[in-house]
Amino acid sequence: MRGKSVLARRSALPVLGLFALPVGWAFLLLIVPYGIMVAISFWTRQFPLFVPDFQFGNYLQLFSDPQYYTVILRTAKIAALVTLAATCLGYPLAYYLVFVIKTERLRALLYMLVIVPLWVSYLLRTYTWKTILGTDGALNSALKWLGVIDQPISLFLYNQWSMVITLTYIFIPFVVMPVFAALENIPRNLIEASEDLGVRPFGTFLRVILPLSAGGVISGATVTFCLAFGDFVAPVLVGGPDGTMVANLLQSQFGAALNWPLGSALATVVLLIVMALLWLSARLDRAGRVALG
């Protein structure tokens, strides 16, 4: 243990520097800004200024004025639909990669193919849906060209569905990654044991594979919901008049409407929802692990 003590004594001074910068940075540029945002959410607006105050008026307004709470509810609904759709589409893909693909090389390659779009400009992938779904866009013109329809369908773009499609598309890889990891970690002998005991493959899937991959599903779904809830690009590019989301509201509060305290209150609500979900998902994950030994 001599080495350890030497290490501890020798590194005392540089260690202080090692801590000071990152901890100071995280404190000054993360904790303080979030704190200031929460503080400003209690301020009052006296046009065109904001004055320090401590009152719950902004929150009251958010939850009593239908102009605001309908948007929050709609955003939650869309984020939930996106989470559901991305999970239902992402899970089979992860299952396919882990259990159907036989060779390691092909699996690695296909997994790469799932990841690559994730890192290809998120803005451009969202924008392309605008060009695909538009009235004279790729989808309508292709359908017309193929003779399926004679009139372009305007139903595709600028509504809640176009937003669900676009966001689902964006978040599928966010589900595939953790589910893939969870499926890969299932001990193969558990599956064999289940089969040896005469359980049919679908039963094995329902009673062994699905419960053991629940942790992956939970973490994928949590990230998807959180990020979809506050998405900044899709509501502006493919959303329509019936699809105002939290992001649009925030943009206007910090832009034309110039009401930072109200905007800060709304952003604080988003922050609290995300933190609550992260906490819940961590707890569920831990509980699941204990139960499964």
């Binding site: 990152p22 901890v23 995280a26 540029l29 993360l30 904790i31 303080v32 800004p33 979030y34 200031i36 945002m37 400003i40 949590t222 990230v223 959180c226 990020l227 809830f229 506050g230 998405d231 900044f232 992001a247 925030l250 910090f254 930072w260 905007g263 800060s264 952003a267 988003v270 922050l271 995300v274 933190m275 992260l278």
Partner: peptide, 26 residues
Amino acid sequence: FTNVILLPLSLPGLVTGIAMLNFYKQ
């Protein structure tokens, strides 16, 4: 410290943006 550093990865970017905007203004 760990949770705070990792938070912006699951938090929508606009919350971080707004928090920093408020901070910079102050």
